[in-house]
Amino acid sequence: MADPIVVAEGLHKSFGDTHALRGLDLSVPRGTVCGVLGPNGAGKTTAVRILATLSDPDAGHARIAGYDVVREAGKVRARIGLAGQSAAVDEKLTGRGNLRMFGRLSHLSRREAHRRADELLDRFGLMDAADRQVAGYSGGMRRRLDLITCLILRPEVLFLDEPTTGLDPRSRGEIWDSVRELVADGTTVLLTTQYLDEADQLADDIAVIDHGQVVATGTPDELKATIGDRLDVVVEDPAALRPAATVLNALTGTDPTMTGADRLSVALPGGGLRLADIVRELDRAEVAAADVRLRRPTLDEVFLRLTDRKESVR
């Protein structure tokens, strides 16, 4: 289990003056889902393209199932599937036509390519649309077709670059189900996403990247634990927000965030502060609190904190 199937060490990649990757390290154990999380321009796509042999790193190296992505690209390609940021299928062909073509290009025999196409269409619920032209598919169907096109050769590692960007919640759920099914079959999945709930739902491990480097790794729970608990305060009168903020700042040493017209949220420093103390201090400042609550941070808050963007003050 601990045997990593995807390993990247010190990957660097520049495009002119843009340093897309600056020493990216990654390690994904076989049979797990690794979520690569990062804001726009963090270098997610660049990293995936290098791992999928589409692009060479300027420095550093990467191995898939023990094969070097640069020197043994052919061996790597035989073991991976890539669903890029856009649905890479031929719009002019039917869904079945696409799968058959990619099956033949994967060097399956004609009969085997046809059989595999039907099998995948059936299993992933596209049989009804199989003979329709892809140009008429919905965004979700297109994405699903794109995903199953990667599965023709039963890849050991599947790279999904933002597989659900632009999909409605239902289509997104369907893609998630498909990914879970693949993982149950033993496929290793590396997926990039900007949606934290997606990583929360699917990933065993998360690597948060920013400015081309990994800034944190861990399970979703571990990441949440790294930034400590959050305190939410709801005041009865919005005019009390300012004094409440002053109190919270004095207690925690950080400026609270306004999360609504009548509420504040603040990160608690590790240990030392008890709910009772906070309530008493608010009382002393004559802030009438409707609700004071301690909670685990959301992955969003972890993400914003780690990627050093300003927390939204609406």
């Binding site: 393209r49 999928a52 042999t53 052919g74 390609r77 991976i80 890539l82 856009s86 031929d90 060097h107």
Partner: peptide, 17 residues
């Protein structure tokens, strides 16, 4: 532009094809 070319490139097919 649709990524089909990248899919070809990431497949174990003959490149010159």
């Amino acid at each position: 532009s649709r990524g089909v070319m990248d899919r070809f490139r990431s497949m174990p097919m003959a490149r010159l094809a």
